[in-house]
Amino acid sequence: MQPAEPARAGPSPDRSHPLDVRVLCLGNDLLADDALGFRVARALRREPGIRGRGSVDIVETPESGFALLDHIQGVRRLVVVDTVVTGRAAPGTIYVIEDHEEPEDWEAAPGTSAHYVGLFEALRAGRAMSLPVAEEVVILAVEAADVVSVGGCMTEAVEASLPAVVSQVRALLGK
C-alpha cells in the first residue's frame, strides 16, 4: 500500500474557542529544574491582574506528547512554559518561540520522535484532523541544568529566571 498524502486540509476547523488564552505550564515538581512550569503556574495565580480574568486559564501538567492534545484545544491562544535541555546555552536562558517558527526555524527543534510525539506534532496532528487547537502558540522555554534528580531543588540559574519568565508571560497576556 502506498501511503496517501499526509492530511493537511480537512473540513473547516471548528473555531469556536470557549477560551481566549491558556497558559500551559509543563513540568514535574519532583524533578529539580523541571519544577519550573509548576512554579510559574503558582506565581501567575498569585498575580492580581491575572487571577479572576475569565478568559485566561492556567494549567499545569506533567504530561507530554499526545496527552497534550487535551490541553491545546478549545482555546484561541496558547502560551506554553517549559524547560528544555539543548546544552547550547547557559542554564536559565529563556527562549521565546513563536508558533510560526515551528519547527524548521528553531535549531533545537526536532525530527520525528523515536517514540513519542511532541507538542509540535500534537499541534500539527490536531490541525490535520480539524480539531479546534489553538490558533496562536507562543512557547517560553528555559534552558535547564538538571531534570533527572528526583526531589532535587531547582538550580540557582533556573530559579533566578523565574521572575523574568513570569513577567514575560504577563507581557504576552497583555497583548
Partner: peptide, 8 residues
C-alpha cells in the same frame, strides 16, 4: 516532556 518534545 521537555520541549521540543521530539528528538532530532
Amino acid at each position: 516532556h521537555s520541549l521540543p518534545g521530539s528528538m532530532p
